[in-house]
Simulated scan of single mutants.
Amino acid sequence: MLLYLPAPLRVPLAAVLFLLNTAFHGPLLIVAALLKLALPLPPLRRGFDRLLPAIAESWIGVNSAMTDLFTRTRFLVEGLESLRADGRYLVLANHRSWVDIPVLQKVFNRRIPLLRFFLKRQLIWVPVLGLCWWALDFPFMRRATKSQLAKRPELAGRDMAATRKACQKFRQVPASVMNFVEGTRFTPAKQAAQGGGYQHLLRPRAGGVAFVFGAMGDVLDGVLDVTLHYDRKQPSLADLFANRIRTVRVYVRELPVPEGFAGADYEADREFRKRFQAWLNELWEAKDARLFAWEQAAG
């Protein structure tokens, strides 16, 4: 551990090591992706489909090792026993902080297929990482604003088209489709703006998740309902590497794909829409109760 270093030195050092790790693995990913495009022979493409996630898992493994090196953060994790590295999962989680992403990657790395996140389109321009996410087939979403939709209603279907395209790819290889169902990070201000409903969560957004069930529910091995909790209200990555996060709790509940969800049309089938919203709200009520119990236990 490098905890003997003061935080003003430890946090920049962690950032530098992260950048060096990315500078090593990133070009490997990009070159492998370009070779996959240039050599479209099926046996070679299948080889690259295995190689690209393996490179990403190596990158994640180094990042996770740095977390252990720089911090004494305790990870209390439940529910990993029956997971398969060659399966296909839909992963649903609450979204508290940017720390959620390295935590989820650390917890699930090499236990399930590589997590593929739905990303905002603008993130493709992040240096090196944007190209890495593209190389790994992360879906990029445009997410038009209400004012944009009012002027151009045809934009409403772009994200669904991107989801459909991504799901067609994920049907062919083991994959874990990751969705932060609240659509944004939790803050008390956002919760107040929604008018309540949950004590520790924002309201879940159903459409994108339902579409994944419709597009690839028949090949999913299960749904992983993940609850994340930190002993700090709004932890940052700097908090993590400055050792200001004492405990991270992760509860994983594996669920079957509900009967009738695979192949269903959320937009056109009113009865399915009601069933799906009720199912998702039930998940969120149980998640909220768990978070409340953890808060009470922590005092």
Rank of each mutant, 00 (worst) to 15 (best):
V77N: 07
L28E: 00
K274R: 15
V62M: 06
K36S: 01
A268E: 14
K146F: 13
A286T: 13
I60H: 10
V219K: 09
R244K: 15
I60L: 06
A298W: 11
E267Y: 10
S58A: 15
A150Q: 15
N281I: 10
Q105W: 04
F276R: 04
A286Y: 03
Q148Y: 01
V126T: 14
M216L: 11
R244D: 13
F170C: 08
F211L: 15
Q194S: 09
D100Q: 07
L224F: 08
R111Q: 10
R111I: 08
Y4L: 12
P127M: 13
L92W: 03
A210G: 06
E267M: 12
A32V: 02
P188L: 00
D49L: 02
H25G: 03
R74I: 07
A156W: 05
A242Q: 10
N94F: 02
F18G: 06
L149P: 11
E57L: 05
L129V: 12
H200Q: 13
I112A: 03
Y266P: 06
I112T: 06
G197P: 01
E285R: 15
Q277H: 12
P204H: 07
P127W: 09
V107A: 08
A193W: 05
R121W: 12
G26R: 01
R111H: 10
A56G: 11
K233H: 14
R45Q: 08
F276Y: 10
L92N: 01
R205Q: 15
L149Q: 12
V177F: 06
Q148I: 12
G208V: 08
P153N: 11
G217W: 07
L129F: 13
H95Q: 11
L29F: 06
Q277G: 12
N109L: 03
R253M: 10
M141W: 13
P174T: 09
R72D: 14
I60W: 02
T73M: 06
E57W: 01
P113T: 11
E81D: 15
R45M: 05
R290T: 14
A264I: 09
A23P: 00
R273A: 12
R116A: 08
K274S: 11
R152E: 14
P139L: 03
R152D: 14
I60R: 07
K120E: 12
T71I: 02
F276Q: 04
F180K: 05
L5P: 02
L155T: 07
N21L: 03
E57C: 09
R46K: 09
L119N: 07
Q234M: 14
G157Q: 15
P53K: 00
R203G: 15
R121I: 11
G222V: 05
Y89P: 02
D225R: 07
A264D: 10
G208P: 04
A38P: 03
R143I: 10
